[in-house]
Design a protein around this nucleic acid. Structure first.
Length: 534
RNA sequence: CGAGGUGUAGCGCAGCCCGGUAGCGCACCUGCUUUGGGAGCAGGGGGCCCCAGGUUCGAAUCCUGGUACCUCGACCA
């Protein structure tokens, strides 16, 4: 399905085999011919996924103008187009959070060092990757040029830059909570966090990144567990419906659990190279932080109890997930629900008179689409040729492109090109044009989802011996593997050491099945999901 | 933190072995022709060759030391 042939910056031909799927039945109702076309390979110096997946990813991020490396090691500049994708994610997620009763707030970037050490597991998890603020002033270098840290300005207590906000939030909640009447607290914040990673990759793991973190406080365990699971469902729905990425909901093993959590739930997504990517997490924190920060409430019987907690988050890493799930060797492919621009209109003309007439019609069509709630852009840039624009918008993954030239004008039609399948057709502007475009957008959303789901399903295996397990992972079509595991961290680590794969999760809807652990041979009651991971 | 790699025009790179006027492609500027798949021709502008020392008549090039970033590994919710 994702085959492509690279050629040397010339007119070699790249053909794509389009896989038929039941979705076409829907599209067929348009009763329009689908023209398969042949594309000259346009992008120069753009490796294919097969050649070098990792480089393909890095080049795509830059060429699609999503982000670029900054002057600061491990940090990136998110460019306007990349940021507009994040804004779309924020918009949709924020609505879902509000819908489930949450409100937004903002807590400080700086956290007193002592806070971090109050929860034992938490400190162990994060201490190694914290940026620390030790001084609050610079001064002119007395021995030469530039600025130096003013030794007089040493902080009494050092501040760390938040790697996550549990500690500062629970030290605040302590003041907010006295009685069960103050509960629950359902707060989310959109923020940046810093984790001093040794090895970084654009969007997937950077030193500073953007995310949202929800932090809730509850009067009962049941309520907190419900919240944890509810937000996991919110994330899963967002991933599937908005991002068009199928995910597996599951619970992490103790080894992979969040530092300070009782249980960590996750959604795991399949990337085109067969690796797994954790696309979101939701933690049941039990009473760990309440105990660490002494947060108690008086229940209805006027007895003091520790508060129950959850936290949950997704980050700009989702942009990485989006790229690695859907994109092809010609660039990004964005699901319409998420795409900042859903339809781009490219006017085509020769003479000045044509330009005017064509542009005017483009604007008219643009207005119609906009009125129907479709996010549309008319590319009126006079300095770029249509061919250049086609390639550019394909690189940027805009789902639908409309081409409008004198010939179309005469026939009252547009040329409609869909990014996902790289097909073109002529569509009349008479009749239910808007309806057809909306159907097309729906169809593209469904197609992207179906393609990555088909790929994932085709590369999801069962292994019953360690030898089979390794062979499956090392093959060219490695992917997700369900295998029996004896439940110990020791075995989990050993399998990681031997194969590079980790347990991504124990799926929530996992069927029980008698078996023996592929490593230790001890009895097991269910298979767990293994994969190499980002 | 280990191992490699790279710092030369806005971007991508060559030049470095073997020291002697700073180069190519893209982008940019001007003009004309173009515009339905990354336009063509002609002319033009742009450099502290990462930094600091050293060798030399002379250093992008050789030597020493620094520094930054990238890639791969280890590490990592």
């Amino acid at each position: 399905m994702f085959l492509c042939h690279k050629s040397k910056k010339s007119l070699a031909i790249c053909t794509k085999t389009i896989k038929n799927s039941p979705i076409y039945l829907f599209f067929r109702t348009f009763a329009l011919q689908i023209i398969l076309i042949f594309y000259p390979k346009m992008a120069k110096d753009f490796p294919t996924r097969q050649e070098n997946y990792s480089e393909w990813y890095n080049v795509l991020v830059k060429k699609a103008e999503l982000a670029e490396n900054s002057e600061v090691r491990g940090c990136m500049v998110i460019r306007p187009y990349g940021y507009s994708i994040w804004e779309r994610m924020q918009r949709v997620l924020d609505d879902m959070f509000k819908e489930t009763g949450h409100v937004n707030a903002y807590f400080p970037l700086f956290i007193p060092k002592s806070y971090l050490s109050k929860e034992a597991d938490h400190v162990e998890g994060f201490a190694k990757e914290c940026a620390v603020v030790t001084h609050h002033r610079l001064m002119a270098n007395p021995n030469g040029k530039g600025l130096v840290v003013d030794p007089e300005a040493k902080l009494e207590e050092e501040l760390i830059i938040r790697p996550t906000s549990e500690t500062i939030i629970w030290s605040t909640y302590k003041n907010w909570i006295q009685s069960y009447r103050d509960l629950p607290i359902l707060v989310n914040q959109w923020a940046n966090v810093v984790r001093w990673e040794l090895r970084t990759r654009m969007f997937l793991r950077t030193t500073e990144f953007l995310w949202q973190e929800g932090h809730t406080a509850h009067a009962s365990k049941e309520e907190a567990v419900f919240e944890t699971r509810q937000m996991l469902d919110v994330y899963a729905e967002f991933a599937e419906k908005t991002l068009g990425i199928p995910v597996i909901k599951g619970v992490k093993t103790p080894n992979e659990r969040f530092a300070g959590a009782e249980d960590t739930y996750c959604i795991e997504a399949f990337m085109q190279d067969g690796k797994a990517l954790q696309a979101g997490t939701s933690h049941f924190l039990g009473q760990n932080f309440a105990k660490a920060f002494d947060v108690k409430f008086a229940n209805k019987e006027n007895q003091l109890e520790y508060v129950w907690a959850t936290s949950w988050g997704v980050s700009t890493r989702l942009i990485g997930a989006l790229i690695m799930s859907h994109s092809d060797d010609d660039g990004l492919r964005l699901p319409p629900v998420l795409a900042p621009i859903q339809v781009v209109i490219v006017p085509i003309y020769r003479k000045e008179a044509e330009k005017e007439a064509v542009t005017e019609k483009c604007r008219e069509v643009g207005k119609m689409l906009k009125a129907a709630g479709i996010r549309v852009k008319i590319d009126e840039d006079d300095k770029k040729q249509p061919g250049w624009k086609f390639a550019e918008w394909e690189m940027k993954g805009v789902p639908v492109r409309l081409g409008m030239g004198p010939r179309d004008l005469a026939a009252n039609q547009v040329e409609v090109a869909r990014r996902d399948l790289k097909t073109k057709e002529n569509m009349s502007l008479d009749g239910d044009f808007i309806g057809k475009i909306n159907d097309l957008l729906d169809n593209i959303q469904a197609t992207l989802y179906q393609q990555i789901k088909d790929l994932r399903d085709a590369r999801t295996y069962k292994a019953d011996t360690l030898a089979d397990f390794k062979a499956l992972l090392e093959g060219e079509n490695g992917g997700f593997i369900y295998a029996h595991w004896d439940g110990t961290t020791e075995t989990e680590l050993k399998i990681k050491e031997l194969t590079g794969a980790t347990i991504r999760c124990i799926p929530l809807d996992n069927p029980l099945e008698e078996g023996v652990c592929i490593y230790s041979g001890k009895p097991s009651t269910q298979r767990v999901l293994f994969a190499k991971a980002y």
